[in-house]
Write a protein that binds this DNA or RNA. Structure first.
Lengths: 166, 166
DNA sequence: TTTATTTTTCAGTAAATTTTGAAAACTCGA
DNA sequence: TCGAGTTTTCAAAATTTACTGAAAAATAAA
């Protein structure tokens, strides 16, 4: 297979995958393009390579920087900003978990807390309380496990990971 | 807080959470409604409770059944189908992982495989091959770990989980 | 300063996804 | 077999989400 065709396929797939992980398609495609590039690219390069507008390019690069998946690289003597991707997959996963934990799990835990004290002792209320308690317990555990994962270094993770897969 | 208000908040939040996990909002709301119900509900109950159309209700119930998150329950002497939710959170998570693995991870692995043999020995091609190899390794490990997780029983999972969170 | 270049913003448009509603297809008791 | 009740389908409409393009703001060399 030609490099060009391979790159296109990868960018396309990474875009699709990303769109299921809270990263929109263009954002993931920009990340893919930077991942497989052996040098930093500027906004213009990205725009032309992916056939998207400057506005779209800019907004998604900034989102990627927010997520910690892309870094700005200033080249001496160059006016434009250049960008490189986080290439360590474990780090990529950790960044995504951090964002999603903050945007999804934590708000859910707050809601669960707020609704845990409904009034009543009838069967319907009891069932409700039971479900909320179960979910809260499960979510809290998940929250702690993810905290540890995020803080862990690669070795700890790989170790635990390897044990999990036996 | 009143039970009714608590239920509404929960359904709303579960809907939002679900929409980030490949489950659309309505689908997640139906699951939420069934989760906190102490008895099986029929399509009409769900439709009225969530203020959605019969078509929408039907399509999403069927999607939930496909995902293994809801089960049909036939009541003797009743003409209508009744539905109950999977209430074991670990099982819920496992079902979601199963679906997402099939729909996301496995296609990605196939693409990675297909593009792993690009031609060329220049720096750009080498970088591309390196990134693809890294991602393939990581994805394969994730795939195995998830397989084990899906097959595992609650005890195994909780055990490993507890070790992870120390 | 001034001016050329680059980045950011955002209202309007376009694309993708979800929902409706009505008709068709089932199902089962009589 | 009929027909009332129930479920399914799917084209069109509504809603949500993403993208563009052009103007404004920021940046830095002259």
């Amino acid at each position: 297979m030609e490099l060009k065709e391979g790159k296109q396929k990868f960018i396309q797939s990474w875009g699709t995958l990303g769109s299921h992980w809270g990263i929109n398609r263009t954002m993931a495609q920009i990340h893919a393009l930077l991942l497989i590039s052996n040098e930093a690219l500027n906004a213009n390069d990205i725009m032309e390579e992916l056939n998207i507008s400057m506005g779209n390019t800019n907004m998604n690069i900034r989102a990627l920087i927010d997520w910690g998946l892309v870094f700005k690289e200033l080249k001496p003597g160059e006016r434009k900003d250049f960008f490189v991707a986080e290439k360590d997959m474990l780090e990529v996963v950790k960044r995504i978990i951090t964002q999603r934990k903050k945007k999804e799990l934590e708000p859910m835990l707050r809601v669960l807390e707020s609704i845990s004290n409904v009034e009543g002792t009838d069967a319907e209320t009891e069932e409700f309380k039971k479900v909320i308690k179960d979910i809260t317990l499960f979510s809290s555990k998940a929250d702690s496990a993810l905290d540890n994962l995020i803080k862990s270094d690669s070795n700890w993770f790989i170790g635990t990971f390897m044990k999990m897969i036996k």
